[in-house]
Nucleic acid binder design. Structure first.
Length: 262
DNA sequence: AGTACCACCTGACGGC
DNA sequence: TGCCGTCAGGTGGTAC
C-alpha cells in the first residue's frame, strides 16, 4: 500500500543507491505496466545515461535521466524498489530492471500489477495533466484550511482524492482522522477552525513519523490505529471499540467512541 | 460535483 | 488436500 511515506522512503533509497551510475541495459519484464511509452523506447532511451536526481509528488516518484527525460514510477498497491547485485537477492515479481555498469541492478517489483512506469519529458506538465493536487507534505496550513472549507462531501473522500491533495491513501487517512478524533464520514466543509488545524497538524505528524521510522510499522507509536485495524479491537487511545465500515468503497476503521462526527 | 460500483490483478485466508 | 469465495487497496471509468 505505497502511500506518501512509503514513496518518500523509496526516493531516499533510490537516492542512496542509484544516482550517477551508467545504465547499461533496461530489462522490461512486464509491458502492461508501461504507459505512453513503447517497450522499445523504454529499453533504449535510458541506456548510456545516469539517474541524476529524483523528485516525489504524492505517490509518484520521478527520476531524472536528462533535462527533458524522466522516469516515472507509480507503485500501485504492492510496488517497491530493490537494489542488488547478487541474483539471490532479486525480488519475486520484478517488472522492470535497470542494469548498471557496476553490475548492480535496480528492480521495480510489483506483484499485483497496479502501478505505472513511464518516460516523461516534463514533470510539471505531467502533474498538471493528471490534475494532481498539492503534495500533502508541502501544503501550508492556510491553504489546507481554505481548500477544506470549500470542499463538499465526506472528509475521508476528500483526503483520499489525489486531485485534491496528493499522497494520502486509505491507511494513512484512517490514521490521521483517528489521531485527530474526526469521524471519517464528517462533512469536510463543516469542520470548525480548531478541528481543521488539529487535522493539519496530525497529517504532518503522522506522515513525518512514518517517514522517520522508515515505514517500519512495528515501530510506530503504540497509540496508532495501524496496529489495530481489526474489527472490535480496543482503541489504543480511549479503550473504545474499533469499528469497520465502508467509506468511498474502502474499508474504513475508526473508533466509535472518540472520533466525533461533524 | 459527489457517490456508488465495477474492473484491473495476485496472493492470502477461511470455510467446507 | 483442494476448490471457491472474499478480501486487500490505488486508480480510472461509468452511471446516477
Amino acid at each position: 500500500m505505497p502511500e506518501l511515506p512509503d514513496v518518500e522512503v523509496f526516493k531516499r533509497y533510490f537516492d542512496a543507491t542509484c544516482l550517477d551510475q551508467t545504465i547499461d541495459r533496461v530489462e522490461v519484464k512486464e509491458e502492461r505496466l508501461l504507459e505512453n511509452t513503447s517497450p522499445q523506447r523504454m529499453r533504449k532511451a535510458p541506456v548510456g545515461k545516469e539517474f541524476e536526481s529524483t523528485q516525489r509528488h504524492g505517490k509518484n516518484l520521478f527520476a531524472k535521466l536528462d533535462s527533458n527525460l524522466w522516469l516515472l514510477l507509480h507503485f500501485g498497491m504492492s510496488g517497491f524498489l530493490k537494489y542488488y547485485n547478487n541474483p539471490d537477492e532479486a525480488p519475486d515479481h520484478p517488472r522492470i530492471i535497470f542494469h548498471f555498469s557496476s553490475g548492480y541492478k535496480l528492480a521495480y517489483d510489483n506483484m499485483r500489477m497496479f502501478g505505472k512506469i513511464s518516460l516523461l519529458d516534463d514533470v510539471d506538465a505531467y502533474l498538471q495533466d493528471q490534475e494532481l493536487g498539492p503534495d500533502a507534505l508541502s501544503l501550508g496550513q492556510e491553504d489546507f484550511k481554505e481548500m477544506l472549507s470549500q470542499k463538499r462531501g465526506m472528509i475521508k473522500s476528500a483526503l483520499m482524492d489525489q486531485t485534491f491533495i496528493a499522497g494520502l491513501g486509505n491507511i494513512y487517512v484512517d490514521e490521521l482522522l483517528f489521531q485527530a478524533g474526526i469521524h471519517p464520514k464528517s462533512q469536510a466543509s463543516t469542520l470548525d477552525k480548531e478541528t481543521v488545524e488539529n487535522l493539519y497538524n496530525n497529517m504532518n505528524a503522522v506522515l513525518q513519523t512514518a517517514i522517520n521510522y522508515n515505514v517500519n510499522v512495528d515501530q510506530f507509536p503504540e497509540n496508532y490505529l495501524i496496529h489495530r485495524r481489526t474489527l472490535n479491537s480496543a482503541c489504543p487511545v480511549c479503550g473504545g471499540k474499533i469499528r469497520k465500515s465502508r467509506v468511498s468503497s474502502r474499508s474504513t476503521y475508526f473508533c466509535e467512541n472518540h472520533q466525533q462526527k461533524y
